[in-house]
Amino acid sequence: MSTRLPTFGNVELTETLQDWRLLSGIVLFVVLALYPGITLNAYHTRLLTWIMCFAIAAMGFNIVLGYTGLLSFGHAAFFGTGMYTVVLVMGQAGINDLVVLLLLAMIMSGIVGAIIGALSVKTHEIYFALLTLALAQLLYILAVRDIGGLTRGTDGIGVSRPDFFGIPVSELSAQIYLLGFYYHVVLVALAATIVLLWFVLRSPFGLTLKMIRENETRAEMTGVPVLRYRVYSMILSAMIVGLGGALYAVLIGHITPEYLDWTMSGEIVFMALLGGIGTFFGPVIGAGGFIMLQELALSYTEYWHFTMGLVLFVVVLTLRENGIWGGAKTLVEMITDRRGEQ
């Protein structure tokens, strides 16, 4: 929901609210930035890095589902493209700088996004879901069967640690690399993604995507080249999901075609939905919720699929596009409303 300035509504309140949000954002960022240095807890740092990689991916995904209104079941293609770009550029071209690798990964994912976007631009709803699924699955088969001789099939490829602007951080021990360097790279990438999307999705561009989501006929009859904007939406989404994939590839150090499979797409959808596809921050919360839930379920039972399936089922039936983040927001609003009445 937009809060407009300067008239209509309470200006002071909205401005205070924005200050409050910005302030808590900065505090959260600082706390997260200091966390590994203070606790030196490698397990938690790794978990947080993992969550943040997927938070980026889920936010990128939600541009297509939440804002443009199209369910893609093929986003693993972009995540996997990001991953494979990192490992292949490192292995084949010998480029070892993290920033270059991340940029190349985003560009490659963007190109794949443009292709899949252009091919699927005229389909809707389940046809869009099934078409993106089939297209992504073609990439998966390409990687599994090692067509082109680059991916080593199901064995996968190891990823070595990249350097940073010529600084040989890769020579650090694995633990210090993560705690002292890589975690912070991912944190900054997530913060940058949030800030970028905060502005982009509130801009006329973001409004245009919402127009397409709400009523494509009307958008077209308002002079919007709908098909072109749907492709833009896919490209932007693919680039950000690719960034998430590229960051994740370095974190886990070994990649296999599984990250291109449709179940991976399903997991990204799941995260966004869990947090709330109708909200801005939902996908971030969803990624955290999904991964922590998975860790929690795994520590009690080997049957964590069941737990995850049940949660997905219940979320779809109860919270829908609100997810847990939207649900929590509604709850807070209800409580404050009641207080206001008394």
Binding site: F306, G309, L312, F313, V316
Partner: peptide, 24 residues
């Protein structure tokens, strides 16, 4: 009674559940 897109997602959850029931 829900939209096809949500049907797809909810039944994806059913796949996950059934998967573990079989494993169990």
């Amino acid at each position: 009674d829900i939209e096809p897109v949500y049907q797809l997602l909810a039944t994806f959850g059913v796949i996950l559940m059934l998967d573990d029931i079989i494993k169990y």
